[in-house]
Each structure stands twice: as structure tokens, then as C-alpha cells.
């Protein structure tokens, strides 16, 4: 349990660091570390497949792309766009809304009983696959269709660009 609290502390700490650092590249790197702590959480839950997938997809691919874009931007102080008061106000409102939602959901939440997992190996690949393809077949297929649509859209965008220009 102490391991959990330690890792949880780390993930919150690095998540906060992600927000509070000035340098966007640092911010992304802290986010990477945050994702790494999530991976550790998954391993603590004995969900090895999820852990590795989180590791590969989020840390290995998506964050690399983030970093990729940020590194190409010229991130000097003078090129930073001026933040108008309107944007700040919108930020405050959005943040307050989020806080409200989280607070409300926490209030509704019952203090749950410590769940005893019926099958501790549920996170292993085989079991996960069986569950995905039997109990959750429809959501799984729908999400895959969503991804396919996104992919086709991306290809279309990439194809159309040069003709217009």
C-alpha cells in the first residue's frame, strides 16, 4: 500500500509540474514521467497488458509526437503571443467549471468498500482479450470504427492539402 501512496504522490507531483513549468518542452517531459507513473500503477494492479500498452502508445508514440512538434516551434519569450484578459477570464471560467464538476462528482461518490478482485489475473492479455471480445464486443468494435474513421480522415486531409496550395 505504501508503494501505491508513493507512486500516487509522484504522479500528482509530476502532473502539477507539467502545469507549472514555463518551458513547454519541460512540461512535455514531466507529462512523460506522469505517464510512466501511471504505468507503474497498472503494474501494481497486475494489469500488465494495459501497463505496456500505456507505455508504448502514450509514452512511446504520442508524447514523442508532442515533443516533435514542440521542438520545431521557436519558443522564445518574444514570439509568445500576448494573452489578453478575455483569454484569462475564459481560462478561469473553464477551470472553475472543471473544479465544480470534480467536486460534485466527489460528493456523490460513496466511500467504496475495498474491492476484492474476483480474478486477480484479469489484467493479463488472454483474459482481457476474452472479456473484450465477448462482454464488451460492441463498444470495442465501435471504438475501432471510430479510429478507422479518424485514420481515413487524416489520410484525406494529407491528400487534399497539396492540390489547394
Amino acid at each position: 500500500m505504501s508503494v501505491f501512496y508513493f507512486v500516487a504522490f509522484l504522479s500528482i507531483f509530476f502532473a502539477l509540474m507539467t502545469i507549472f513549468t514555463k518551458n513547454p518542452v519541460h512540461s512535455v517531459l514531466y507529462l512523460v514521467i506522469t505517464f510512466f507513473t501511471f504505468t507503474v500503477h497498472y503494474i501494481l494492479l497486475n494489469a500488465q497488458f494495459l501497463a505496456v500498452v500505456n507505455f508504448i502508445v502514450y509514452m512511446g508514440a504520442i508524447m514523442v509526437l508532442f515533443l516533435f512538434v514542440l521542438m520545431l516551434l521557436n519558443l522564445n519569450k518574444d514570439t509568445e503571443p500576448l494573452k489578453s484578459n478575455l483569454v484569462k477570464l475564459m481560462g478561469v471560467i473553464a477551470g472553475a467549471c472543471l473544479l465544480l464538476t470534480v467536486g460534485g462528482s466527489l460528493r456523490v461518490l460513496e466511500i467504496s468498500q475495498p474491492i476484492v478482485m474476483k480474478n486477480p489475473d484479469i489484467g493479463l492479455v488472454g483474459n482481457l482479450g476474452k472479456v473484450l471480445f465477448s462482454d464488451f464486443l460492441l463498444p470495442f468494435e465501435i471504438s475501432s470504427i471510430l479510429l478507422l474513421t479518424a485514420m481515413v480522415g487524416a489520410v484525406l486531409l494529407a491528400k487534399n492539402e497539396p492540390k489547394k496550395a
Binding site: 512523460v32 497488458f49 505496456v52 507505455f55 508504448i56 509514452m59 512511446g60
Partner: peptide, 22 residues
């Protein structure tokens, strides 16, 4: 012998690119 050994190697390889990028 973790039961996702192949994926583990994948993850490590994916991480390796950070070294070069940074």
C-alpha cells in the same frame, strides 16, 4: 518472463527514441 514480453521490448524501443530526441 513477463507475459507481455514482446510488447515490453517494444515499449523499451519506443522509449529509446527519447534519448536521441532529447
Amino acid at each position: 518472463d513477463i507475459n507481455v514480453g514482446v510488447l515490453y521490448i517494444f515499449g523499451v524501443v519506443a522509449l529509446g527514441v527519447y534519448g536521441i530526441m532529447l
